[in-house]
Amino acid sequence: MVDNWPHSSLQRSDGSLTEIDLTPVEPSSTASRNKLRNRLLMGGVLVLLGFVLFQALTSARVFFRNVDEAVAERAEIGDQTFRMQGVVVTEPAENSRGAITFQIAFNDVEANIVHIGEEPSDLFELGMPVVVEGHWEGDVFASTQILVKHSESYVADNEDRPGVGENPTYESESNDGVG
């Protein structure tokens, strides 16, 4: 790039540098290669930007509803695909056809979920907040993806915290003193 630019800047037609003749001595293939390179650079970025924006706009149409809203609007939603957020309130079970069945709730409204698709992460269990993507099939939400929401607190595995571990073990070697 560094050793290339003087050639094309010598070739500029706006006249700002051309007190003297600056037409390139090199064969003009260098200049057209540089133009092609410019186009490829900008074209590549625009394609990427187009892709990301397309994804942003199409996925923005996948609505994000809490369970109570999704239940209340069930008639209007029909069989549209959307995302539903709630907390897992029953122990997830696998039915005879390999689907995972459980209930999630939000604002005391519950919904039955039948999930067929990729395995959820290891964090998926009773009590975890989740986002399921899918659609209503009657009273049942047919899920194709289960995403577990991050909890916003981080608790050490080997430490006792009020209200957290079920079996409080008062470890003397906690990490509190370090740093």
Binding site: L48, S59, E119, S121, L123, F124, Q145
Partner: peptide
């Protein structure tokens, strides 16, 4: 992947971050 259950999803924060990445690449 190990927490949500997916490497990527077109969530607002992830999407806006991806847009930024492309803008600064530009």
């Amino acid at each position: 992947k190990p927490t949500w259950g997916t490497y990527w999803t077109w969530d607002p924060r992830l999407t806006s971050t991806a847009v930024s990445f492309v803008l600064y690449l530009g």
